[in-house]
Design a binder for these strands. Structure first.
Length: 413
DNA sequence: TCTGGGGTCCTAGGACCC
DNA sequence: TCTGGGGTCCTAGGACCC
């Protein structure tokens, strides 16, 4: 079993783990303003989110807009009803990933262990850096990093700190906006007592409801309950997890090299698609997009999954695991096409969303496994791979328009 | 103006093998 | 002959996060 941060602290209180969570303030809003300062720098009521399809939701809202009740994941229309004077802009995706990379690079120069938890959150493990930082307190370190990031990347962040990732994460909430909050070693449980269960990461609306049914709403409600009771109410896994979480215990490490587990590409249509032909055209685009993403990470995939969301919002998936890992658009599309047909045979409703996902990923640099299974139907040939890689390099040299997806031909089965 | 897009992890049942 | 017990892999769905 993993040694938890608490185990380490109990063994040697002087060497408590020192974890920081660096969280970019209203990241998408900040980036949108940096990208278009003339138009947006002075706009207080700013909403970043999709409205291009007419079916968009809020990705991020400025603090001023949040005061009107605007929240992430809220339909943009609803947000505008709450805050009619807000300016809505699209998500500057490229700029966001570039800025995220800048922040990460800057942090990697500052700290020995950095893990990107999402596009705008970075965990740092500073355990053992006491001497390196000349005895600087964790709090002072956090303030110093904040300033360096502001200078080097123009991004304003809030920083939470503590002995576990969970404590650092919750501390970040108290640090916002634009501040620092560090929980002293040994104070984890007392710190946790102020939170509602719904505040804890990993406890969402569904779990909140089943907790409420047992009369549990706050961390302090759970603290006196025996682990065995929690397990009998919520299952062995969840019960154990909850028992540890409310005490600030979190066994997960700050791990800079978490391998990617899946890649996917999906699209919600501005109007529902009704014909198989239209869906197949979209499926081809998605296969090309997800395939390119896969190859750019030097990965291959054994499992292809197609996701279909019908007009009534019912979501269905169908997946297939192949004997060999694949990477070319043509083969991804062939497999995905069969899965889509399968889903459509079961239920033929207008479709609002279609997606293609790849999982069971393996590194592409391994020795060539082709031929092991005799090259049966659905299996990729060296020619398929070469073609896909050639198309990628043409696109990166001449732009995506240089090669149209129509160039891919379904291979006979 | 009803509900994005990219992920991770868990569960439960069935197939299959020893 | 009336029904094992584990382990692993696969599938579908769902909860959750940013």
């Amino acid at each position: 079993m993993l040694e938890t941060s608490n185990d380490i602290r109990e063994r040697d209180p002087g060497r408590a783990p020192r974890i920081l969570l660096v969280d970019c303030d209203q990241f998408y809003v900040q980036v949108a303003r940096l990208e278009d300062p003339e138009a947006l720098a002075g706009v207080d009521l700013l909403i970043v989110g999709g409205s291009a399809t007419g079916r968009g939701v809020v990705t991020s809202a400025s603090y001023a807009a949040r005061a009107y009740g605007v929240r992430s994941a809220m339909p943009t229309g609803q947000a505008l009803r709450l805050c009619p004077d807000a300016t809505v802009v699209g998500v500057p995706r490229k700029a966001c990933s570039a800025r995220s990379k800048d922040v990460r690079t800057a942090l990697e120069r500052l700290a020995p262990v950095v893990q990107a938890a999402s596009i705008d959150e970075f965990y740092l493990d500073l355990s053992g850096t006491e001497r390196l930082f000349h005895g600087e307190t964790l709090e002072d370190t956090a303030w110093r990093f904040r300033e360096v990031l502001q200078d080097e990347t123009e991004i304003s962040v809030s920083v939470g700190g503590g002995a576990t990732r969970l404590v650092a994460k919750l501390a970040t909430r108290l640090a916002k906006p634009s501040g620092v909050h560090v929980v002293p070693a040994g104070q984890e449980q007392a710190f946790m007592e102020q939170f509602d269960l719904a505040d804890l990461p990993g406890i969402g609306p569904a779990f909140v409801e089943s907790l409420k049914a047992r009369g549990l709403e706050r961390v302090v409600d759970v603290l006196p309950v025996d682990e065995s009771w929690l397990q009998s109410w919520f299952g062995p896994q969840r019960g154990r997890w909850l028992h540890r979480r409310v005490r600030g215990v979190d066994g997960s490490r700050v791990n800079p090299r978490e391998p990617r587990k899946s890649v996917s590409s999906e699209r919600t249509f501005s109007r529902d698609l009704t014909t198989d032909a239209a869906l197949e055209r979209e499926l081809l685009k998605l296969s090309v997009s997800v395939g390119r993403h896969l190859r750019s990470s030097d990965l291959r995939a054994r499992t292809v999954t197609v996701k279909l969301r019908d007009s009534d919002f019912r979501t269905r998936t169908a997946g297939s695991t192949l004997p060999e890992a694949i990477e070319s658009d043509g083969v991804i599309y062939t497999v995905a096409g069969e899965l889509l047909a399968q889903l459509r045979r079961k239920r033929r409703a207008p479709a609002r969303l279609l997606g293609v996902g790849l999982s069971n990923l393996v590194a592409a640099d391994g020795s060539d496994q082709l031929g092991l299974f005799g090259g049966g139907a659905g299996v990729e040939t060296e020619r398929d791979r070469t073609l896909a890689r050639t198309v990628d390099s043409l696109k990166s040299r001449f732009g995506d328009r240089a090669v149209v997806p129509g160039g891919i031909v379904k291979r006979p089965q």
